[in-house]
Amino acid sequence: MIPFEFFLVLAAILFVIGAYGVMTKSNAIIVLMCIELMLNAANINFVAFGAYNSDVMGQAFVVMSISVAAAEVAVGIAILLNAYKLRKTTELTDAELTSLRW
């Protein structure tokens, strides 16, 4: 049987890759994909904990969080499309789109 720690380490690595991508990438689509990566890292945790504790709650939570993530990406892409129509770019490096002003 695969040792339990392997799952946690995999999830932690995925989460960190996702967080790194959100903070450094300039394309909004890639940023959304990185957010998905972070969510899936948490899902791996849930499935692993559920399986090793013989508890269904972990799996049930994953079903919920997958549907939430799908809805979030659908709305996110729609919002990006709206922004694209007005600005003709999905790059976040566009000065006005990135700057979180004081």
């Binding site: 999830a11 890292a41 919002i79 709206n82 922004a83």
Partner: peptide, 26 residues
């Protein structure tokens, strides 16, 4: 449009953080 893009990206990141925290607690 700009506000919504920021909101959805930052909101998504906060969701992921929360979910990771909940998974650890679980």
């Amino acid at each position: 449009a700009e506000a919504a893009v920021k909101y959805v990206i930052i909101g998504g990141m906060s969701t992921a953080l929360t979910l990771y925290g909940i998974s650890m607690l679980y």
